[in-house]
């Protein structure tokens, strides 16, 4: 339970930690656009370098970043297998058996696709989830979506729901841990037996978990009302977000990177596209 690092915030004071969360969201979007626009080996190499650079300056241990790949390893393998076998090519196939033929293009494409998924996960991880506290992230989303309030979208309420949901994830994990420990103390076994048996073993965890989650929701609602919470109207913030000069430097560089990717795509001397 506790090893689930995907989407977990690691406090720190690196350059990435200090970036304004709104700017982080914006540059993350630019970063994702870059990844999906990259078209050939050279632009992928450029993105790989950029991602390694981001991981290094985030000062998050490389081991932890790599661990975030574990949950998606299946998707990566799937991508690789399909691309290797199903990509047609010009010229002679490198290998062929039954109805499958493997071309050089297929292998290149498989590697690039796998790379795309991996740098997507690790890069957005260090840009956003590992270096931004969930609360700051919710604040940033609320602030960026602010203009939608004009057309009566309840932005604040959505952000509050998100904050509360994020806030209670660790609590629920802790609770799950506790319930599992209590069941283990009474001889429950979660790691052995058939799939059916293991799924059945989850029922004793889910029931108390739901009961206490509903109870907690009600208590939280009462506590919020006791403190006169009435939604976003006229509400001020304790931590007001301020863009700093360095945030715009980041923005400038990311726009520059995006333009570079387009340029590399267009004028690459190496013409191995997929």
């Amino acid at each position: 339970m506790k090893n689930n690092t995907f989407g977990q915030y690691f406090p720190g004071n690196s350059l990435l930690h200090r970036m304004d969360p709104r700017m982080k969201l914006i540059v993350t979007i630019l970063y994702i656009v870059m990844i999906f626009c990259a078209k050939n080996v050279l632009s992928f190499a450029f993105l790989l370098l950029l991602t390694v650079f981001l991981i290094l300056i985030s000062r998050i241990s490389v081991r932890i970043v790599l661990r975030s790949i574990r949950p998606i390893i299946f998707i990566v393998l799937f991508t690789v297998v399909f691309n290797i076998f199903l990509t047609g090519g010009t010229g002679e196939p490198l290998a062929a058996f039954w109805i499958f033929e493997i071309y050089r293009e297929g292998i290149v494409r498989a590697i690039l696709m796998a790379l795309r998924v991996i740098i997507l996960i690790t890069g957005t991880g260090v840009l956003l989830t590992y270096t931004t506290s969930p609360i700051a992230l919710a604040d940033a989303i609320e602030s960026l979506l602010g203009p939608l309030k004009k057309i009566h979208v309840p932005v604040h309420e959505f952000a509050m729901m998100m904050t509360i949901a994020l806030r209670f994830i660790p609590t629920l994990i802790e609770e799950t841990d506790r319930i599992m420990s209590a069941l283990k103390a009474r001889g429950a076994d979660f790691s052995n037996g058939s799939i059916v048996k293991r799924v059945k073993a989850l029922i004793p965890i889910l029931i108390p978990l739901f009961v206490s989650a509903f109870k907690r929701a009600e208590e939280l609602a009462v506590a919020m009302e006791c403190r006169c919470y009435r939604g976003g109207e006229g509400r001020t913030k304790l931590h007001v977000l301020h863009y700093r000069f360095s945030d715009f430097v980041w923005l400038f560089f990311f726009v520059l990177f995006l333009v570079s990717v387009f340029l590399i795509n267009a004028f690459s001397p190496i013409k191995i596209a997929y």
Partner: peptide
């Protein structure tokens, strides 16, 4: 072992 607040673990 009886854990803390064991009543929340009845299922």
């Amino acid at each position: 072992l009886v854990m803390q607040y064991p009543e929340y673990q009845l299922f």
